[in-house]
Structure formats: structure tokens, C-alpha cells
Amino acid sequence: MSEAVRETMTVSERITESIAVKTVFTIHAFGLEIAISDTVVMTWIVMAILIALSAAATRRMKMVPGRGQAALEAFVTFVYDFAEENIHHHGRKYAAFLGTVFLFLVTANVIPAFTPDGGFGFEPHFTIKPLTRDINVTAAFAAVTIVTVLVSKIRYKGVGGFFRSFVQPMPFMLPFNIMEYAIRPTSLALRLFGNMLGGYIIMLLVEAVMPLVLPPVVGLYFDFFDGLLQAVVFTYLSTVFIAEAIE
């Protein structure tokens, strides 16, 4: 959109326009119209970045590590240790899943900070919006997490143990136990979504109020710290849920 049009918009309209999820293109397949939104495109970009970085980092590993390889090893070891420490018995099997979710969320939350800055009122060519502003993305992550929890519970406790766990510790807990499986993914999804969207809206407000000095300073908190913290919280809560399920 041009500068002139942007100038005529109110702050509220600008924010509404910024946080809206737009359809980039539509795929016609299987007799369906699959609308590919910009968040899906961003997801693909994030995936490509992660895969490319991992492949580059692990392509030539030496027995005597350099600095980058040492950091990579430390990170991977930390993820494995973290999973093992929190999910005692089969922790190492979940390390890859939790680590993947964590890496994706960190990249997805932090990447808006790398929007090329137009500066001095110039419109940047494109803006990177946080892809977790789309409730569908965070809901998908929460759904995958809760399905992982359910599958692990059935796998390590048996079908009987799975159904028995609903009436534990007391039979009247049954509705609460069932509700837990609805509330947990909802709260996971909404927490991530609300935090990132809230941070993004505040960043937009700050840019609207004072576009020159303040945004990088505030962005340090809302883009880096909050994004990292929310990724940690999401991963940690997933770990706790899985651990609780197979304990």
C-alpha cells in the first residue's frame, strides 16, 4: 500500500490491517480450494531457514569441535538432558520433538525483528509479521502437543491405564480430567497467540506514536525477550504435560 493511503488511515485501521491474515494464493487440489495464507508462507520460510542452518551446521562435524560446533553440541546436549531430566523414563525419545518445537517457535517469534527498516518515514519493501499472530498456527502446535500427550499415555500406560487415569484419583474427577484435555491445548494456543499478537500490537502502537528511537528499544523486549520466553514456556509446558502423562 502506498504512503499516501497509509497516511490517511487511523491507528486502529492500520493495526487491523497489519494483524489481518491474508491469503497469498490458492491451490486447487483434490477438488478443494486450499487458501495459502501469508502465515503458511512464513512457516515455510522459517522451516527452510531451520533446515538449511541445521544441514550446514551438521554437515562437516569434526572430532575436535570448533567454536560453532561446540555451541551446536552444547545446545543438542542441553535439549537431550532437559528432556531426560523432566521426562524421566523415555525422555530421550521426546527430545527431538521438543527441540524442533522450540527451535521453530524461537525462530518464528524472533524473525519479525529482522524486518528491513525503511527508516525516516520510507515504507519498507516488505514487513515480516509474526506468524504466531495467526491462531491457527498456535492451535496446530497445541493440537500436536496434546495428541503427543494422549498417544504417549496410551503407549506407555496401555489402553486400560489410559481410561483408568480419567477416574483417578477419584471417580468424580472424571469431568475435570476430560476438561483438562480441552483446556490445556486451548491455554497453550491462546497463550502463545495472545502474547505474540499483543506484543505485535504494542510494537505497532509504539511505531505509530514514536517511529524514530523507541521501536528498536521496545522491540528488544517484545521481539527478542518475549518471543524467547514464550517459546520456552510453550516447550516447557509441553514437556511437563508429556512427563505427567507417562509418569
Partner: peptide
């Protein structure tokens, strides 16, 4: 972290509701 996240979720629910009302 768990406690803070659980306490925070109420604020997030409120925020989501208000966003729903706004947009």
C-alpha cells in the same frame, strides 16, 4: 515458569476477548 504461565493465561484470555471485541 509454570506458575507464571498459568497466572498469565487469565490475562491472555482477557486480551483475546478484548481483541475479539476490537477487531
Amino acid at each position: 515458569i509454570i506458575g507464571a504461565a498459568l497466572a498469565e493465561s487469565t490475562a491472555i484470555y482477557g486480551l483475546v476477548v478484548s481483541l475479539l471485541l476490537l477487531f
